[in-house]
């Protein structure tokens, strides 16, 4: 069975402007819209396309999160994942804990490929895929903008600071995906109905032998420093004048 696992994180929707609580204990999340991390949606889309091309047999969506994360997994099933696994956690987990769980799932499921978003847009950590690859002892190709399956090898183009880098990695492997890899499909109503019948297993950390650990302690949340209000100019001549006074033109 050529199985692809896809990490799906429930996060605050990208369109929500998150605000810090006045007492500095966290960010205000009551009643805000939650969605699949956009990068994870791209990862899932890539897995589905591989299956549709006959390069994979099964796509399994996996998440770590609260009971409500079932909503995001149901969306993943509606997009086309075959089944889903939720590892229940009522608190946010650190990337290393997530990677430990994903490693255990990858082994238990005999995964051929794990696809995850390059970062989650809540903690912006950009770590889980790399950590999973390390713990699993397998290759990683991060920030992927193109993935080709060549038998037992993947050829991955990565968005790096210098431009586009291409690597070849042996399967099984971990790929973290970047924005331009694909455009995820929209979910259709009949697929939402069908998704309700697909299997979604709810598991615990203990099922995978992982003890969730808080290694980093967050002691304070503050709002970022704001820039002071600028000036509006009416013309290019005025703009150039101001720039000259600042020594910038």
């Amino acid at each position: 069975m050529r199985r692809i696992l896809v990490g799906i994180k429930r996060v605050v929707d990208y369109s929500v402007r998150v605000r810090v609580k006045p007492d500095g204990t966290g960010v205000a999340l009551d009643g805000v819209k939650m969605s699949i991390n956009p990068f994870d949606e791209i990862a899932l889309e890539e897995a589905l396309r591989m299956k549709e091309r006959g390069e994979a047999d099964e796509v399994v969506a996996m998440s770590i999160g609260p009971e409500e994360a079932q909503q995001q997994l149901r969306t993943a099933l509606a997009m086309g994942a075959d089944r889903a696994i939720l590892v229940k956690s009522d608190t946010a987990v650190e990337p290393l804990t997530a990677a430990q769980v994903f490693t255990a799932i990858a082994r238990a499921e005999d995964a051929r490929l794990v696809l995850v978003g390059k970062q989650a847009i809540d903690d912006d950590a950009n770590q889980t895929g790399q950590m999973l690859a390390a713990l699993w002892g397998r290759p990683q190709a991060t920030f992927a903008s193109k993935v080709e399956v060549l038998g037992e090898v993947l050829r991955v183009t990565r968005e790096v600071d210098a431009g586009l880098e291409t690597l070849e990695i042996d399967l099984p492997a971990v790929v973290t995906v970047d924005l331009r890899l694909n455009e995820p499909r929209y979910v259709k109503l009949p697929d939402i109905m069908k998704a309700k019948k697909k299997p979604l297993d709810v598991k615990s950390f203990a099922d995978y032998g992982v003890e969730p650990t808080e290694r980093l302690k967050v002691t304070l949340y503050v709002a970022p420093a704001t820039r002071s209000k600028g000036i509006m100019v009416k013309s290019v001549a005025e703009l150039v004048d101001v720039l000259k006074k600042k020594g910038l033109a």
Partner: peptide, 19 residues
């Protein structure tokens, strides 16, 4: 950088520590 973001989480995981 893309280099550091690729490498250091892998280092941290091998060391068994957070990043």
């Amino acid at each position: 950088s893309s280099f550091g973001k690729d490498l250091l989480p892998r280092v941290a995981a091998l060391l068994g520590v957070a990043q």
